[in-house]
């Protein structure tokens, strides 16, 4: 992983992190958190921890789906 790739994926992660703070819609915030994880997944792969990447990329969507349960409840009330 050379410098240009580090710069590109760091740009993806930083765009996601800043966007998650600036979004006002809750679905927009969840999408931005997904972009942050997309930015850091190649760093885990470049270190060689592929088994960790398998575990993490199966646990993080479960966390998002758990948060979506309360999003649906909130939209139903309002």
């Amino acid at each position: 992983m050379d410098d240009l790739l580090v710069l590109l994926f760091a740009a993806v992660a930083l765009i996601g992190a800043v966007s998650a703070h600036l979004q006002r819609d809750r679905f927009g915030k969840l999408i931005a958190v997904g972009i942050v994880f997309g930015g850091i997944a190649p760093f885990i792969a470049a270190r060689g921890y592929l088994d960790v990447l398998i575990a993490v990329s199966l646990i993080v969507p479960v966390t998002t789906i758990i948060i979506l349960l309360i999003c649906r409840r909130d939209a139903h009330d309002a």
């Binding site: 679905f27 969840l30 999408i31 997904g34 994880f37 997309g38 990329s57 199966l58 993080v60 969507p61 998002t64 789906i65 979506l68």
Partner: peptide, 9 residues
Amino acid sequence: GSTLEANAI
């Protein structure tokens, strides 16, 4: 995982 997440959203 990511496709499941986007489809759930």
